[in-house]
C-alpha cells in the first residue's frame, strides 16, 4: 500500500491505481471475506514470490532485454537449496550455495546476451530449458521434502503480524526503486534500454551493466525460490515454471515498456498485487479457476489499451495547444 504513494502521478500510475481500486471494490462486493485483515495478510503471504521475481524481471526488461529463464532459474535454485538443506548443511550455507548458482545462471544469460549478442528472448529461451533440465537432473523429478523446520522462518514467519516475505519484497522494491531513480547504475540501465549503442558511445560500460542486470534478476528469482521452498516446506523442479507469463504481464501492467528504457519496480509490484487479488477474489467467490485466465488477460489488454488512448489524447491536446 505504501508503494502507491511512491508512484509518480503519471498517467499510467493513475490508470493502474484506478484498476487497483476497482478490483478492491469488486472484491469487497463479491465476498465479505475479501477486505479482512486475515485475507489481506494471506494475499501478502502468497504474492511476494511472484513479486520478487517480477521486480527482477523489470530490471532486465528496462534494459530492453527479457529473461524467459527466470521461472526455471527459480526452480533450479529451489532444488539446489532444497538438496543442500536436506543434506544437513547449515541454512545460511545452503542459501549461499543457491545464490551462487543463481549468479552463475545470471552470468550465463549475460554472456549469451551481452558478449555473444544473441537476442535476449532467444538466449533465455534456450537457458530456460537448460535450467529446467538441470533442475530435473538434480532432483530426478522428485519433490524434496523434509526441509528442516528452522528454515520455515523465511516463508511462514510473521514480524509484527506481517509475513516476513512481504517485508523482504518491500525492502527489495525500495532498494531497486532508489537504485533506478537515484544511482548512476540505474540511469545506465535506463540508458541502455533507450539506446544501447548511444549509451555505449557515451561511456556506459554496456556489458558490465547488462551482466549486473541479469545477475540481479537471477538472484531475485533465487530469493523467490527460497521463500517458496520455505513456505511450502518442499522443493520441486517445476517451482516458478508457471510464473513466467504472469510476471511479464505484471511488469507490463505496471507501466514498464517492453522495449526498455521506461519503467519502475513500484508499478510491477502493483501489477502483481492486482493479479493476486483477482485469483483471490475468484477463489473466495468460488468461481472456476478457468475464469481467472480470462479475467487476467482482459484486464491486461484493457488497462494497456486505455493507457494508450488517454496518452494519445493528451498528446493531441498538447499538439493543439502548441499550435
Amino acid at each position: 500500500m505504501e508503494k502507491m504513494k511512491k508512484l509518480r502521478p503519471s498517467l499510467n500510475g493513475i490508470v493502474l491505481l484506478a484498476a487497483f481500486l476497482g478490483i478492491v471494490v469488486i472484491g469487497t462486493v463479491a465476498s465479505r471475506n475479501f477486505l479482512t485483515i486475515r485475507n489481506i495478510l494471506s494475499i501478502f503471504q502468497q504474492m511476494p514470490e511472484m513479486g520478487i521475481m517480477a521486480i527482477g524481471l523489470t530490471i532486465v526488461i528496462i534494459t530492453g532485454g527479457n529473461d524467459l529463464s527466470s521461472g526455471t532459474t527459480m526452480g533450479l535454485c529451489a532444488v539446489i537449496s532444497g538438496l543442500c538443506l536436506t543434506s544437513g548443511m547449515p541454512i545460511a550455507l545452503a542459501v549461499l550455495v543457491s545464490l551462487a548458482a543463481a549468479v552463475l545462471c545470471g552470468c550465463l544469460n549475460a554472456v549469451l546476451v551481452a558478449v555473444i549478442g544473441i537476442p535476449p528472448m532467444i538466449a533465455t529461451l534456450g537457458t530456460q530449458m537448460f535450467f529446467y533440465g538441470a533442475a530435473l537432473v538434480l532432483s530426478k523429478g522428485n519433490s524434496i521434502s523434509n526441509i528442516p523446520r528452522e528454515f520455515y522462518f523465511l516463508g511462514q514467519n510473521k514480524i509484527a503480524g506481517i509475513p516476513l516475505q512481504a517485508i523482504i519484497l518491500v525492502l527489495l522494491t525500495v532498494i531497486l526503486a532508489v537504485v533506478l531513480k537515484k544511482r548512476v547504475f540505474g540511469k545506465h540501465l535506463i540508458a541502455i534500454g533507450n539506446n544501447s549503442k548511444a549509451s555505449a558511445y557515451s561511456g556506459v560500460q554496456t556489458e558490465r551493466v547488462l551482466f549486473a542486470a541479469y545477475i540481479i534478476c537471477s538472484v531475485l528469482c533465487c530469493i523467490a525460490g527460497n521463500i517458496q521452498v520455505s513456505r511450502v516446506a518442499t522443493a520441486r523442479a517445476d517451482m516458478g515454471y508457471s510464473f513466467l507469463m504472469p510476471c511479464i504481464s505484471a511488469v507490463v501492467l505496471g507501466g514498464t515498456s517492453i522495449d526498455g528504457g521506461i519503467g519502475g519496480v513500484g508499478g510491477t509490484v502493483v501489477g502483481v498485487i492486482i493479479f493476486a487479488m483477482i485469483s483471490n477474489i475468484m477463489n473466495l467467490a468460488g468461481i472456476s479457476s478457468f475464469w481467472q485466465q480470462l479475467a487476467t488477460g482482459s484486464i491486461l489488454i484493457l488497462v494497456v489499451v486505455f493507457n494508450k488512448i488517454t496518452e494519445n489524447h493528451k498528446l493531441q491536446r498538447r499538439k493543439k495547444e502548441s499550435n
Partner: peptide, 25 residues
Amino acid sequence: FDIHPIIITLGTNSIYRGIILVMTN
C-alpha cells in the same frame, strides 16, 4: 492502438485459452 504485440498477445493468449476451457470445462 500501436501497442507492443507481446503485450496484446500475452493478453489474448490467456483469453482464447480461458474461453475454450470455460466452454468445455
